[in-house]
Design a protein around this nucleic acid. Structure first.
Length: 109
DNA sequence: CTCTTGACTGAGG
DNA sequence: GCCTCAGCCAAGA
């Protein structure tokens, strides 16, 4: 099978699955890694299908480190709880020291 | 094919 | 620093 057989969504899932424990990244970073810097919205859109998979979607936030996608989780503060469980400090839906926990796939991967 | 939607981002006021 | 507007791109109806 060709490596290009993977759809945009599948690529997003692949990258998101490789996010290390205790680290977070942004939609734009993933999109940039996929060669679609302008498709950051598509990354988030793709995450809609991340449920039921082994995708740590809670490690993916917007460029400001804000938990914009928390409303898509089961509870209202589930996403924050998961992040805090990994040692990440979250306050008011915003990750503290975001730059410190930021994981860039284009550099790390 | 056309229109709408969206877990985004950058620029401007 | 906060709010608003516009651009971007893929999937679904």
């Amino acid at each position: 099978m060709k490596s290009e057989t993977l759809n945009f969504f599948d690529k997003v899932y692949d990258v998101a699955r490789q996010i290390p424990f205790g680290r977070v990244t942004s939609y734009g970073a993933i999109a940039n890694y996929l060669g679609a810097k302008r498709s950051a919205r598509m990354v988030g859109y793709a995450m809609n299908g991340s449920h039921g998979k082994d995708i740590p979607a809670h490690r993916v936030v917007n460029r400001k480190g804000l938990l914009t996608g928390k409303h898509h989780f089961d509870g209202t503060n589930l996403m924050q709880q998961l992040l805090e469980n990994e040692g990440i400090v979250v306050m008011d839906n915003q990750i503290q020291d975001f730059d410190k926990f930021f994981w860039d796939p284009t550099k790390e991967l």
